[in-house]
Design a protein around this nucleic acid. Structure first.
Lengths: 218, 218
DNA sequence: TGGCAATTGACCACCCTGGTCAATACCAGT
DNA sequence: ACTGGTATTGACCAGGGTGGTCAATTGCCA
């Protein structure tokens, strides 16, 4: 695999920095980009949030766009690396698979909120180099493949095509995630509530199994 | 009902304007507010989009916040008025009810995209007068009431509580709407595609009825 | 013609933008 | 103690956008 070395394209001045400090800076930038998009993101706010002077930013990066590109590279590296450990592609029903993915997403969001928020911006922004677009494309394909690989479709009720049922299940999970997200945004952003919210979902998980799977062991 | 007269609080100069022109101006403003939020919305862009000079804006409105408030008032008036004609509360199953609501939402979104987009901003913005917040609150309560009034819950399968099933159905619809929205945003914003997307949903509607309703006429 | 309403856009002070740079502070090697 | 390179600062720049003002003009009707 000819994957690029981590931080290959960054300026030496930035690479010389302690890894932890690098992350802090990139996180501050990703937060700003996620909140305001590329154009409206302010380098001044970034330096303030990262606790450094204006000069340092342009000592570490050529310009705003260079910083943006480094953020994308960092986010992609991290997501690619994480995807592998996400889902062991075990033989299981689709609902169980979706539940495991939802849990993995939740954990990733809590542990890496900056990357989670920033990843949405990458797609929308016009100034993303094609190479990054490609990497993101394959990343998403890989994700979808892992989502459907090695599923036990025989658990589904037999009177409707599994493809139809899977889309319905997926929409249900998405709709639930959307509601949880809104709830979290409306009240404080305490991550503990997210967990409680997820716990409550157990009831609905069971209901879905009753509804979508066959009742007997045939 | 001591509901306020339409346009009661607006400046006379603006009220003297032809109704159609009033709408054009408010729509331009709502578009800008929806896209950028209150703070980052630009009065310059609004006047350009509305095809008028800077001076006129401040001839019609006291200041930016006044304009914002008038937008909210207009949007609330319109939504309150529309809600009544939305759903005739007929005796029907929950899935049919949700399908009708989704269709009504879709039509409203196509015919009044500015209000649809702007309504989301109202909740988030800090400078919304409490009276408006209250009106929005009752509006949403009314909406929820109409959503569940006069339902025929006996169509649901009997082995799970209807409340559980209803939430699952709601999430499914939300998830689907979310996917359609994203699809529309990713490609061009041609509203025709939205309709085609909805037509395809017929298959899934039938599937949901098979899954959530009782099979026989018992 | 006068008088009032409608309309314009140049103009204001202010703030923020991305980016620069001369001036330092730091520190290892000699 | 001196040197030389690296790290770091923040004042500063021109440019552009901000919400808002206002003297001047136009249009219209009595």
């Amino acid at each position: 695999m000819p994957s690029a070395e981590r931080g290959e394209s960054m300026k030496e001045t930035f690479r010389r920095l302690e890894a932890g400090r690098q992350e802090e800076i990139l996180k501050a930038a990703m937060r700003e980009f996620a909140e305001n998009g590329y154009d409206k993101a302010s380098t001044n706010r970034i330096v303030r949030d990262a606790g450094m002077s204006k000069g340092m930013l342009y000592y570490y990066f050529e310009n705003k766009e260079d910083l943006f590109r480094d953020c994308i590279g960092y986010a992609l590296d991290h997501m690619e690396q994480s995807l592998e450990s996400w889902i062991g592609t075990e033989r299981e029903g689709f609902i169980e698979r979706m539940a495991r993915i939802a849990e993995a997403k939740r954990r990733y969001f809590r542990e890496h909120p900056e990357i989670s928020g920033f990843s949405a911006v990458i797609l929308l922004s016009p100034n993303v180099p094609p190479s990054f677009r490609e990497r993101l494309g394959t990343l998403m394909e890989e994700g979808k493949r892992k989502m459907f690989d090695g599923l036990d479709l025989s658990r589904f009720r037999g009177d409707l095509p599994p493809e139809t049922l899977m889309r319905l299940v997926q929409w249900t999970f998405d709709g639930y995630a959307r509601e949880a997200e809104e709830q979290m945004k409306a009240e404080g952003v305490n991550f503990g509530d997210l967990d409680r919210y997820w716990d409550e979902f157990g009831v609905y998980l069971d209901a879905m199994k009753t509804i979508y799977y066959r009742g007997d062991g045939s």
